[in-house]
Design a protein around this nucleic acid. Sequence first.
DNA 1: AGCGAAAATGAAAACGTTTGCATTTTTATT
DNA 2: AATAAAAATGCAAACGTTTTCATTTTCGCT
Lengths: 342, 342
Amino acid sequence: MRVRSRKGAPGIIEVAKLANVSPATVSRFYNSPELVKGPTRNRIEKAAANLGYIRDRMAGTLHHGFSGTFGLIVPTIDNAIFAELIEAFSARLQEKDRTMLIAAHGYDLAMETAIVRSLLERRIDGIALIGFDHEAVPFNMLAQRDVPVISVWNYHQDSKIPCVGADNFEAGRLITQHIIDLGHKDIAFVFPETQSNDRARDRLKGALAVIEKNNLKISDNRLLSCSYDVGAAKRLAKSVLSENAPTAFVCCNDIIAHGVLFACQNLGIKVPQDVSIVGIGDFGGSEYLEPALTTVRMPANRIGTKAADTLLQMSETGMMPKQFVESIDLEFIERASTQKPG
Amino acid sequence: MRVRSRKGAPGIIEVAKLANVSPATVSRFYNSPELVKGPTRNRIEKAAANLGYIRDRMAGTLHHGFSGTFGLIVPTIDNAIFAELIEAFSARLQEKDRTMLIAAHGYDLAMETAIVRSLLERRIDGIALIGFDHEAVPFNMLAQRDVPVISVWNYHQDSKIPCVGADNFEAGRLITQHIIDLGHKDIAFVFPETQSNDRARDRLKGALAVIEKNNLKISDNRLLSCSYDVGAAKRLAKSVLSENAPTAFVCCNDIIAHGVLFACQNLGIKVPQDVSIVGIGDFGGSEYLEPALTTVRMPANRIGTKAADTLLQMSETGMMPKQFVESIDLEFIERASTQKPG
DNA sequence: AGCGAAAATGAAAACGTTTGCATTTTTATT
DNA sequence: AATAAAAATGCAAACGTTTTCATTTTCGCT
């Protein structure tokens, strides 16, 4: 295998030589500047700048075991769903001089396990996983190495691992209750497959709980399955709408809601006069659609930031976070896509 | 500082002991399996599995200089613009058993420089930057360490560094030509600030080149500035449309085009009958809008994959890629948001 | 069976830092 | 000015691999 020589790049030793100190002092200059005296500090600073020295954190990692890098594994990057979360998580780490390794598993749990392993090989200091549906293997690997892991996005009171997220059951409940409060009886539910997606599962449970509580029934043909894809949702909704239209669509997230809305527009069906639509997420854009989408805001930003903070804290203290489960508040946002059935 | 003990985690030495071989052989088992004989291989495999061994790539990196991690720095993650690129880049690296460090600089070039430094401290094997507008410092740091760098997204024939991207001048040209071919004379151009965004600059140049070639004039009040934000674009378009509406909007990207479309819908202005709209990008969703957006497809997927391949190749050979500048074809897609002026 | 060449394995020296401990320098105190 | 205590710095042994070189084992021939 090819080996890369360090070439022109100076190391701590070259810097030390030029500054007339020992390598140890240069190391301290970077890791605990308060331990090195003013004049020495200046000499090192100058020497490092002159040589264009850049630290090699890997060498340090080898020694003390912390890489300063955290992992984030999401089902998909190319999708509005997690973009905001990723950005917030990354930004917070960046503030704290840490970096983020990210990877997507495409809703494939076995792939997720492989990714965890790959990140562990890179000696991450902690890792955030989406939701609660995971294989057991990654947890064992993480536990054996004492690497902090948290679940983000979803929230359960009795989670086995620390979590930072919103209550998806509640989100499903909120939008469904809203639709029922408006007086809708013929409601279509559009959700993805929920086997390995606890967020969707919880939302659906929340939705169905409301139905049950109100002594309503949902016929099977009103329980629609659809992936998180605008095009798929649009196609599905078009076929439903042109056959036997419900008066409202409860969508598992805004992506699906967008598709349903476009289907209505395509067919000349008026929203919300003829059909009401609700989503979950409040992704960028939902606010500006015409009509603006009624939805539940998932505070992705705050989840991402808080997740980074929690992981950082766990890594630094080596302990579980004070707040083992953290619920980030949802916000129901009524906009223009829902109203009483005509 | 806290030091993490390896705790229960076994190293190559423990595996070697259990398999009754030397650590060197275990190392070879992972890096060049063909060098170790069948029975030995089996023993090592079993030992590693029993102990739950996970390699420490950092230790290897220290030795040979390759971390197996590549960097990608984008202006923003939370935005449809780069999501597809990021996903494709990441996926290809994953296939090749590499990982991706990603960070966003928020269109701040000084921040970009800081990020490059931070990634270099983590010993990345190569890095991809968006476009051609960058400070000189990061290039010097990269060059001194012989770390491959490429520009992605944009394409210039005479680029100083390898690039993989599409011709943004051409994209601007294509959409503007289309609008002019349809017979529009009163055209509004909505573009972001172009100082440190060469992609937008090139698109605008392309657009203006067409105008000039057709001996048309654009008054200053038809040259609109707007960030890549649906809400901002919608607000801007609403004010323009209610004062003195043009017959067509040429938008720097689909995000802006979406905003303009929603503004029209909000005001009851018919698209494309009253106003035509074109964007660039063909982001997810543009195809399904009503009316579907006429745009130019930026092949983000292929760019991301190709970028990863190029960087991998440079890292492995230590040489510039065979194809120094790589142009990924654009595709003009006429859909339903444009027609002849009323 | 004996030989030489090829294949498989082992021993040990890197890789570039960090940090405990030892030593030197500075500071405060008398 | 001498001394003890505190602060700053240096020395050298890690950290967990990889790889060169040396050694041993295997294999194909005669």
